[in-house]
Write a protein that binds this DNA or RNA. Structure first.
Length: 592
RNA sequence: GGCCCGGUAGCUCAACUGGAUAGAGCAUCAGUUUUCUAAACUGAGGGUCAUUGGUUCGAGUCCAAUCCGGGCUACCA
C-alpha cells in the first residue's frame, strides 16, 4: 500500500466521520516535509478548511489526532499554520527498506499493455551528426528507457533523410573531385567523408559564382546559377528516374554514411528496432490525401494544391500536396504515421524533434484527428530547444559547427586526463582504464544534456561545460563506486533482520524516503516526457547518500543491527543509482 | 503583424504543477583525511523570481498588459 494513498484515503474517511462531508481524494495534497521542519510527509490543510469549517490549525489538529489513532505507523505530528507535518515510526521506515530490498522489480512497472512507437535521431545522410542530434538521441533513448520502466512496450525507430538535393551535392562533388577515394583509403569516418564532399560542393559553388555576373548576394538563390547546381539537379532527376549508375553511387555513399553513424550510435549506446528511409516514403501519401478529400476534411484549392483549413484551431491554411500533385514533408509524415499504425497498432507515437517543428507537428496531429483517426490522440511531439554556443546558435555556415563525434572525443580526452591526474586507474588493466574513461566521459556529457528540461535551451561551451564535480554525472558515478567499495568489504556479512532496528538517524530516514520515491519519479518522468526528472532525482539521492556516508560509520557502526541496516541502505541506494542512471543511458562504474 | 517557447544568484540549472523563510552546483572565500574512495563533506557571502497590475487564505507558478531573447508563420526538410 502506497503511503500517500493511505494518507489520502484516511483523510477522506476522517472528513466523513468528523465533519460529515465527502471530499474528493485529490483535494488532499501531500508533500515531502521541508527539511527545516520536523516530519516526513506534510498534509496541506488550507484546501480542506472550507469542508471542515474550522480554522486551519484546528482542522490540522483534528486530522493529525485521528490519523495517529487510526494508523499506528504515525509516530507523531505537529501543526504549523495550515501545515500538518507527520512523522512515521522508525519501524515503518525500516520495514519500508526491507520491502524495497525484497521486491525484485522495484522501479520497473508491470506491462500496462500499451504500445509506443518512439521516433528519434532523424539524421540527414549528407552530413555528420551534430550537437543537436546528440541532444535528440540522448533524450530519445532515455525516454524509451523510462517508458519501458513505466510499463510501456516501446519500439524505437529512426528515419533517415537519405534523398534529395543535398545528398546529390555530395555525390556530384565526389564524382568530380573524389578520384575514387574512399573512407577506407583516407581513414575518414564514413559520415564525415560524405559530409566533406558536401562542404566541397559549397566551396566550389562559391568559386564558380565569382565568375558569374548578376548574383544577388544570397547564396540560396545564387547557387542556382552555377553549372555545378545544374549538374546536381540532373543528378537528382536521374536518381528519381532510377538510373542505375546514380543509384549505385547513392547506395555506395549512403552505405559509408550508415557505417559512420553506426559507430557513433554504438559509442553512445543508442539503438533502433526499425529504420525508415525517406527514399522509400517520399512518394507515399497520395492515398491518405485522397481519403481526406473524400471525407471533406481536406479540400482542393483553385490551383490544384490540396490544403487543410486550420484557421479555426488558431493555425493557418496548410498545403498538404503540391499543385503538381507531388508530396511534401507533411504528406510523407501523414503517410508514415498511418503506415506505422498498421504495422504496430501503437497507442502512443512520440516524435523527438527540435522545437523548430512545433507548428508542423500540430498540423500533423490535427489533420489526422480531423480524419477521425482516434490513435492520433496518442501523438506526442517531444519538442526540445536548441543547443547554443555561448555566442549564440551553432551555425554550420559560420564554421561554428559542433560536431557530435568531435565533442564526444573531447569529453573522453578530458575524462582520461582528469582520471589519470587523480590516480584513479591504479591497478586497472589498459582495457579497464579505457573503459573507465569512456564511462566517465560519456556520463558527464549525457548527464549535462539530460539534467535540463527539454524545452529549455542549453548553452554549451565545450571547454567549460564538462565538469566532474558537483551536479554532474561523475559525481553520481563516484557515489556508486564508493558504495561498491563498501559492499565488497561487506560481502560476507549476513544482513538478515536489519529491519528490526527501530531508531533511525534523520539522514537514514531521509534516504529511505528518497528510495521510496523512486517509482513516483519514474511515473512523473513518463507522464511529463521528461528525463530531467530522473536526472535530478538521482542527483538528490547521491548527494543525500554522500552526507550520510560522511557522517556515519557503516562497517564500524556501534551495534550489529546498525551496521546491517546501513549496509542494506547503501546497497539499495547503489541499486537505485544504477537503475536510475540506466534510465538516462548512463553506466556506473564499480571503481573509480 | 499573428502564433508558440523561454527570462529565477556572476554563470549553469531546480522548485513535487497554487503551499511554509525560492534551493543546488560552478566560480569566490574559510574549513574537514592516522577512521568505509576528498571526483567527497561543512560553513560564508551572493535574489526586486524581467516589469506592472489582477485573481485568493497563499503566486516564481494562474490571468492581463508591457519589455527582452529565440523559433515558426514555405507548394524546403
Amino acid at each position: 500500500m502506497k503511503l500517500e494513498q493511505l494518507l489520502k484515503d484516511s483523510t477522506v474517511a476522517i472528513f466523513k466521520e468528523e465533519f460529515n462531508t465527502e471530499i474528493a481524494t485529490h483535494t488532499v495534497t501531500i508533500n515531502i516535509t521541508k527539511k527545516e521542519h520536523e516530519g516526513d510527509y506534510t498534509i496541506v490543510v488550507f484546501p480542506l478548511i472550507k469542508f471542515s469549517k474550522k480554522s486551519p490549525e484546528q482542522t490540522a489538529e483534528i486530522i493529525g489526532t485521528k490519523l495517529k489513532e487510526k494508523n499506528k505507523i504515525v509516530a507523531s505530528f505537529n501543526v504549523i499554520k495550515g501545515f500538518l507535518n507527520l512523522s512515521f515510526t522508525d519501524a515503518y521506515w525500516a520495514n519500508r527498506l526491507k520491502e524495497i530490498a525484497d521486491s525484485k522489480n522495484y522501479g520497473s512497472f508491470a506491462l500496462n499493455g500499451q504500445k509506443v512507437v518512439l521516433e528519434y535521431c532523424g539524421p540527414n545522410t549528407n552530413k555528420p551528426l551534430h550537437i543537436g542530434h546528440l541532444r535528440n538521441m540522448l533524450l530519445g533513448f532515455s525516454m524509451s528507457e523510462i517508458l519501458n520502466a513505466a510499463g510501456y512496450d516501446v519500439t524505437k525507430v529512426n528515419i533517415y533523410n537519405d534523398r534529395g538535393i543535398a545528398i546529390c551535392k555530395s555525390m556530384v562533388a565526389y564524382l568530380r573531385y573524389g578520384n575514387g577515394s574512399t573512407p577506407q583509403s583516407t581513414g575518414i569516418k564514413g559520415d564525415h567523408f560524405a559530409g566533406d564532399w558536401y562542404v566541397k560542393w559549397n566551396e566550389k559553388a562559391k568559386e564558380e559564382l565569382q565568375t558569374i555576373a548578376g548574383t544577388k548576394g544570397d547564396f540560396d538563390e545564387d547557387q542556382k546559377l552555377t553549372e555545378l547546381f545544374k549538374e546536381t539537379q540532373e543528378m537528382l532527376l536521374k536518381w528519381e528516374a532510377g538510373d542505375a549508375d546514380t543509384m549505385a553511387l547513392w547506395n555506395r555513399m549512403n552505405g559509408w554514411v550508415y557505417e559512420g553513424f553506426q559507430k557513433t550510435f554504438n559509442l553512445l549506446g543508442v539503438d533502433f528496432q526499425k529504420d525508415y528511409f525517406e527514399s522509400q516514403t517520399y512518394l507515399m501519401g497520395k492515398d491518405i490525401v485522397e481519403e481526406g478529400l473524400q471525407m471533406n476534411v481536406f479540400k482542393k484549392r483553385g490551383d490544384g494544391a490540396v490544403v487543410i483549413d486550420l484557421t479555426a484551431d488558431g493555425l493557418d491554411e496548410k498545403v498538404l500536396l503540391r499543385s503538381d500533385g507531388t508530396s511534401i514533408y507533411i504528406t510523407q509524415d501523414l503517410a508514415t504515421a498511418e503506415l506505422r499504425h498498421t504495422e504496430f497498432g501503437m497507442d502512443k507515437m512520440i516524435y523527438v524533434v527540435a522545437n523548430e517543428q512545433d507548428y508542423h507537428f500540430k498540423v500533423l496531429k490535427l489533420a489526422l484527428q480531423k480524419m477521425g483517426k482516434n490513435w492520433a490522440d496518442g501523438i506526442y511531439h517531444l519538442s526540445y530547444a536548441l543547443v547554443e554556443s555561448p555566442t549564440g546558435r551553432f551555425k554550420s555556415r559560420e564554421g561554428k559547427t559542433a560536431d557530435a563525434d568531435d565533442l564526444i572525443a573531447e569529453v573522453l580526452r578530458i575524462a582520461k586526463e582528469k582520471t589519470k591526474e587523480l590516480g584513479k586507474t591504479e591497478g586497472f588493466s589498459d582495457e579497464q582504464a579505457i573503459e573507465l574513461y569512456k564511462t566517465i566521459g560519456l556520463g558527464a556529457l549525457k548527464y549535462f544534456v539530460l539534467r535540463v528540461n527539454p524545452y529549455k535551451k542549453i548553452i554549451f561551451n565545450p571547454e567549460e561545460s564538462i565538469d566532474f564535480h558537483g551536479h554532474t554525472g561523475p559525481f553520481i558515478q563516484y557515489t556508486h563506486a564508493r558504495i561498491c567499495a563498501i559492499l565488497r568489504r561487506a560481502a560476507e556479512i549476513d544482513l538478515t533482520g536489519f529491519q528490526n532496528l527501530h531508531n533511525l538517524a534523520a539522514i537514514e530516514r531521509e534516504l529511505i524516503i528518497l528510495l521510496s520515491e523512486y517509482e513516483n519519479t519514474i511515473s512523473a518522468a513518463a507522464e511529463k516526457y521528461d528525463p530531467s526528472e530522473v536526472a535530478n532525482y538521482v542527483y538528490n539521492l547521491a548527494k543525500t547518500y554522500n552526507k550520510f556516508y560522511h557522517d556515519f560509520p557503516i562497517l564500524s557502526a556501534v551495534t550489529d543491527l546498525e551496521m546491517k541496516l546501513r549496509i542494506e541502505l547503501s546497497k539499495q541506494t547503489g541499486i537505485i543509482i544504477r537503475k536510475g542512471m540506466k534510465l538516462l543511458g548512463i553506466e556506473v562504474p564499480e571503481k573509480m
